[in-house]
Simulated assay, not measured.
Amino acid sequence: MSIPVRTLPFDHPGPLEPCPEYAELRTGTPVAPVMTPDGRRAWLVTSYDAVAAVLSDARFGMAPPGATSAGNHTLFQDGEAHARLRRLVSKAFTPRRIATLRPRVEELAVEYTAALAAAGPPADLIAGLAAPLPLRVIGELLGVTIDGSERFRELADTASSADFSAAGDSAEVAAATRAWHDLTLYAADLVAGKRRSPGDDLLSGLITVRDGDDGRLSDDELVGMSTTIVAAGYLTTRNAIGVGTIQLIAEGRLARLADAPEELEGVVEELLRHQSGLTAEPFPRWAHEDLELAGVAIRAGDPVLVRLEAANRDPRHFPEPDRFLPGRQGSSPHLGFGRGPHHCLGAALARIELRAAFRAVARQLPGLRLGVPVDRLVWARGQNDAGPTEVSVTW
């Protein structure tokens, strides 16, 4: 039987509601042919099991088979080149190092929330907390000085502002491209400065890390890792704080988190499950050989698009998937941070930032509420990330 080819993107009935087409496909055709906005044929994967399989299977790569990785010094590549980088980075980006950041992240969350409260309502949650908190954390993680923090913020904001998948050479994309170039130059200067005068920060740790088999990270790799940390850690966390706060308000759960740290962990995990895909989806994958996925024949070179928004609401793994149920019993782990070789290295840090932000808001602004209806919020949607550009709040 011929399967109809649907055209992406699907429409959301509301900014926080999943596409109904995903539920339909997940039930009947979890691996379905689709047409992308730029006219390419691809496979759309919507079930939890099939998505987890794609993310875990080395036969699905970040680049088409045969593509060269020359000039790519980031973790967004395949095979041994990726494995070597990840081994080296993991030696510096350790759980112990990340755990030591928690008091500072909590201090910053309290500081930004206090400034928001002091300025008085109405306020923009994104500009006051959701954006500056992860950006400040990343800056301190990389050892950005106070003098350089404003330039760093400016470049990161601009570089993260555009959808590079948009058709045409728009002024927005051109500005973002220039900002990424400038951010790369900034990172190169930062690496050079840390080589001359290392400090107690992650970038200095990455410079000094060594492995008998893998050697050391080159300057190009260090610059690539610095920009990757900005790309992966800033916009996604900003969106998660903004959307998570909106959902906590809607669920009437915000004030309860002030003195209930035992609830906070479960709440954050459920927020991550609910907003996965609404705020971020993994990069496309390509089949590197002929294979079968959920009974469907995939040919080498075929692009494959996994949808966390669909997988994390699969009723076979999450009973009553559309309900917000912190501390779910008997459910599978959500896939919000991916799975397999490209599982997010910053997952632990993101969780620390989210818990710190929600606890600070709950304690200082327990009566926080939206200043405008959810359906009036303006969202920026990029190739892999989406989130509200502004969230007006009052109290």
Rank of each mutant, 00 (worst) to 15 (best):
H12A: 15
P15R: 03
P15G: 07
P30Q: 11
A32W: 08
T36S: 08
T46M: 06
S47E: 08
A50P: 01
G61T: 02
A63E: 10
G71P: 06
G79K: 00
A83W: 00
R86V: 02
V89P: 02
S90L: 05
A92P: 08
A92F: 13
R102W: 01
E107Y: 05
E111D: 11
P122E: 04
A131E: 12
L133V: 04
L133M: 04
R136P: 00
R136G: 02
G139Y: 10
G143A: 07
T145G: 10
E150P: 02
R153H: 14
D157V: 10
S161M: 11
A167M: 13
D169R: 13
H181C: 15
L183N: 09
L190A: 00
G193K: 04
R196S: 11
D200S: 15
L202I: 05
G205H: 03
R210N: 15
D211M: 14
D211Q: 15
G212R: 07
D213A: 15
R216K: 07
V223M: 15
V223C: 14
G224W: 05
G233K: 02
N239A: 06
A240W: 01
I241K: 00
G242D: 13
T245N: 07
T245K: 06
Q247D: 12
A258I: 09
L272V: 08
E292I: 02
L293C: 03
I298K: 02
A300T: 06
V306G: 00
D314F: 06
P315Q: 13
H317C: 13
E320N: 11
D322Y: 07
F324A: 08
Q329V: 14
P333T: 08
R339C: 06
H342M: 13
H342K: 14
H342W: 14
H342E: 13
G346A: 13
R351C: 01
R359C: 08
R359W: 03
A360M: 09
P366M: 01
G371I: 08
V374M: 15
D375P: 12
D375A: 14
L377N: 07
D385I: 09
P388C: 09
V393E: 04
